[in-house]
Simulated scan of single mutants.
Amino acid sequence: NYPDAPLHTGEIQVMEIDEDAPIAFAAKKAYFLAYEAALDLPAGLYYYVVRVDGEAEALWVGKVEQ
């Protein structure tokens, strides 16, 4: 369960990784995600949540690293 009011939100830059290797049937695609923000937060443990705008289910959750 994540807070309804995040401390910060923004748009992620998504780039598909284009590989020359053969792709198997129903293979997953690989993506590189980039996001950068300068925030003045007190020391603590923070998590980021990646989700499609308007969707409730998170695609990925991870720790914010400084």
Rank of each mutant, 00 (worst) to 15 (best):
10 G>P: 03
66 Q>G: 15
18 D>L: 10
9 T>H: 03
16 E>H: 00
38 A>Y: 04
21 A>R: 03
19 E>W: 01
20 D>I: 03
42 P>W: 00
2 Y>M: 11
1 N>D: 10
58 A>R: 03
23 I>H: 00
2 Y>G: 05
43 A>W: 03
51 R>P: 03
7 L>R: 04
66 Q>M: 14
33 L>N: 01
16 E>F: 00
51 R>H: 14
47 Y>L: 15
1 N>H: 06
42 P>R: 00
43 A>L: 13
37 A>E: 13
54 G>F: 01
53 D>S: 12
52 V>A: 13
27 A>T: 07
59 L>F: 12
15 M>P: 02
39 L>F: 00
60 W>F: 15
63 K>H: 08
40 D>W: 02
57 E>L: 13
46 Y>M: 07
33 L>H: 00
29 K>I: 01
30 A>I: 11
14 V>D: 03
6 P>Q: 02
23 I>D: 04
57 E>N: 08
9 T>M: 07
40 D>L: 03
50 V>C: 14
28 K>C: 11
13 Q>M: 11
26 A>C: 07
28 K>E: 14
22 P>E: 05
52 V>K: 12
50 V>Y: 14
64 V>F: 06
58 A>G: 05
17 I>C: 01
14 V>T: 07
27 A>M: 04
13 Q>C: 03
63 K>F: 06
45 L>W: 09
48 Y>N: 09
46 Y>C: 07
52 V>W: 06
13 Q>D: 13
37 A>Q: 08
19 E>N: 11
31 Y>D: 10
34 A>H: 10
48 Y>F: 14
31 Y>F: 10
44 G>K: 02
19 E>T: 12
63 K>M: 10
3 P>D: 12
58 A>E: 14
20 D>Q: 06
42 P>C: 00
29 K>P: 01
34 A>E: 12
57 E>V: 12
1 N>I: 08
27 A>F: 01
28 K>W: 02
8 H>N: 12
37 A>Y: 05
2 Y>N: 09
1 N>S: 10
19 E>P: 05
52 V>S: 13
40 D>R: 06
15 M>R: 11
63 K>P: 13
27 A>Y: 01
47 Y>W: 10
58 A>Q: 07
32 F>M: 11
65 E>P: 00
22 P>A: 00
13 Q>Y: 04
54 G>H: 01
24 A>R: 11
6 P>G: 04
50 V>T: 15
34 A>Y: 07
57 E>D: 14
37 A>H: 07
37 A>L: 05
20 D>G: 13
4 D>I: 09
24 A>C: 09
31 Y>T: 05
4 D>Y: 03
18 D>M: 08
8 H>R: 07
11 E>H: 01
10 G>C: 01
24 A>W: 08
11 E>I: 06
51 R>W: 02
28 K>I: 08
53 D>Y: 11
56 A>F: 10
39 L>S: 02
37 A>F: 04
11 E>F: 00
52 V>Q: 15
50 V>M: 13
15 M>G: 05
19 E>L: 08
65 E>M: 09
40 D>V: 10
56 A>R: 14
35 Y>K: 03
28 K>R: 13
57 E>K: 11
20 D>F: 00
64 V>C: 10
20 D>R: 01
61 V>P: 09
2 Y>L: 15
6 P>A: 02
45 L>S: 12
45 L>Q: 15
30 A>Y: 09
66 Q>S: 15
61 V>H: 06
47 Y>T: 15
63 K>W: 11
41 L>N: 06
64 V>S: 08
51 R>L: 10
23 I>K: 04
1 N>L: 06
6 P>S: 04
